[in-house]
Design a protein around this nucleic acid. Sequence first.
DNA 1: GTGAAAGCGCTAACAG
DNA 2: CTGTTAGCGCTTTCAC
Lengths: 343, 343
Amino acid sequence: MKAAKPPKVTIRDVATASGVHVSTVSRALDPARRQRISKEVLALVEETARRLGYQPNRAASALRTGRTHTIGVLLPDITNPVFPPILQGIEAAAAARGYFVFVANVGDPQLAQPILARMKAQQIDGLVMAIALREDPLIDFVRDSGMHAVMVNRADESGRLPAAVSDDRLAMKLAVDHLVALGHRRIAHLAGPQTVPTGVGRRQGVEQALRDHRLPAPRIVECDSYSREAGQQAMRVLLESSGKRPEAVVCCNDLVALGAYDVLRAAGLRIPRDISITGHNDMPLVDMVDPPLTTIRLPHRELGWQAAEMLFQAIEGQALLASTVVLRPELVVRASTAAPAAA
Amino acid sequence: MKAAKPPKVTIRDVATASGVHVSTVSRALDPARRQRISKEVLALVEETARRLGYQPNRAASALRTGRTHTIGVLLPDITNPVFPPILQGIEAAAAARGYFVFVANVGDPQLAQPILARMKAQQIDGLVMAIALREDPLIDFVRDSGMHAVMVNRADESGRLPAAVSDDRLAMKLAVDHLVALGHRRIAHLAGPQTVPTGVGRRQGVEQALRDHRLPAPRIVECDSYSREAGQQAMRVLLESSGKRPEAVVCCNDLVALGAYDVLRAAGLRIPRDISITGHNDMPLVDMVDPPLTTIRLPHRELGWQAAEMLFQAIEGQALLASTVVLRPELVVRASTAAPAAA
DNA sequence: GTGAAAGCGCTAACAG
DNA sequence: CTGTTAGCGCTTTCAC
């Protein structure tokens, strides 16, 4: 039992009600060119539009102009806490420009292409991609489809698409510098999957930072994924490997660091007394774990905002100011790092 | 420098290429009525459509039919970890039916109405609302606008809109039963804001469960919001109030419980030795805090899925199977609860 | 089972 | 500055 359905009021109704032609109404209601309308008519039209409760029909305008004021966002997993703030940033930028955002979770990479096809059918004006592996053919597919697109969080190394990313190398340098300043020398790295740009970038960041300090190259164990389980497994491998135990471990992200926590605790080692640990992302609640995690905070929301802004620039035909925006991460020192026990 | 823009292929192109009329193509490509087309023509049309790379233009079909295959979702804050799984559920249900989802963060309740107006302009087919206070006029606004809408996570007590919710009373009963079984008698409750349905429901759940055990009514402190800060403040009030210290505290959600942790730790009290704590939501990482939090797990993803399914039923004109779907929460016992130290 | 024709609501030339 | 006209791509009567 719905209430009386509100009678759809169109631009035509507004036109007849205010005694002008539809095209005049169309112009009056478009901010971009209401200036070409006389003050009186403008006021009249706006008034009657409000009075009648006129709501423009975007579907009609989309059909005519080919622009829907809609963008798509492809995420691997909205449940992963790095993505909500990114999405929030995108959404905020979109709202500020009068755009809406379609979100699609692309759990299985296989689904990306069909989802993209459906988004094209919906006539999206542009696309923000937070997925894409290294050398992903999807990027070519997107470019060839002639769609405006940008990447966020994961850079496109080949530069085929604009991107907004955090500086992975700097992030790892911040972690290493901190550990070195505390007096650590034997530093290991639990690296992210080397199939993904961030995995590579962070590993290189650790390596470079250690070189800069003229310290030996880190022992590196690669994780299968950015998960706690993968972190556990990698930490186990690290502990079981020969040689002296590292004094500190730089982890590719917080979940992996927490996986390392699990294994170290099970092995009877204390953090940070026996070993220091750093993460990356500053996920919610990592300040509540035991011990609170020293990590790298990323400007996730800002990343989303910037990516969306770049996209809108492209959509609106302006020259892009930059093809890659790199934002600065920040070190957050907590209790999982300390000077080594024995000098 | 874009690649050559792909020439838009329309239904008309498919028609001429296959030597039939556009309306035939239209029918052939619509699953609902391709049956009225002869096998040969059907095959021919499908083949040429594929060959030309035809993509239907949803904007055109939307203009004609008034259906966009698009729904809107209003969230208070996607950054709050309860919402991503809900959104994921909604999105999955939508994708399964060929719909897309507009997400809007409604940080300030004042923004809800303008956002809604814009969504209407976009011709959304329906709306999932995860916002709405008790007695929220927004609900009337939505109903009066003649839009299909459902609520998720927060119920509409007045029954004006269908809803998918978790059973708040049962959730609190599970927590109380657990604490009573451990031997606790003096149980307090840090309640959620009583302006919000969940805040009221959970409080009533605690009260009822204690009555069921013939135990005294709980001491109750109301939190300003579902945040850690509010939890700290409420716990401080509880500790400073007169009377014997409670043996256990049932918190309205995990963040509030973690706020309680902060204050108890600062006061030199140990959990669970001196006091037991329970949460609600089973947020990511609450199993990693010190001590791991006993809490209530909600079927968030399922909630989103069910809400979306109800919405689609309404959109597609079927009678709703239920006006409120209530799903079962589940107790997750960890280390923040234990028998009281002294019997 | 298929074709013809009209039109959803809006915008973009082109006149005046 | 405003009106006229045409049509975006699709669905849907209504004929045949």
